[in-house]
Amino acid sequence: MLTCKQFLQELNDFLDESTDPGLRSEIERHVNECPNCWVVCDTTRRTLKVFKGMEAQAVPADVQQRLVSAVQKKIAARQGKRPAAPIGQ
């Protein structure tokens, strides 16, 4: 039987599903028998899920415009041309 401390040390690999099968079943047994570790495992998994579900918000329009200008200038310089009409037009 794993101790709670050993369980915590293995938690990362367990959540990333990179634990080898023998250890995995030991961890599962511990989680099923230890209410505290069950809660830690469940809430850590849900922590990762909520972060993975976070969408990146749009870049503010002024920031995006300056990015586009900088990129166009760079491309024009590389192609030996002066900045001209916006790309794609």
Binding site: L8, N12, T43, L48
Partner: peptide, 20 residues
């Protein structure tokens, strides 16, 4: 990386637990 990741995940779990 693994060691820092574990601490980061556990600390975030604690913070979100206070909220959720």
């Amino acid at each position: 990386v693994k060691s820092r990741l574990l601490r980061a995940r556990l600390q975030l779990r604690e913070k979100l637990t206070r909220q959720f």
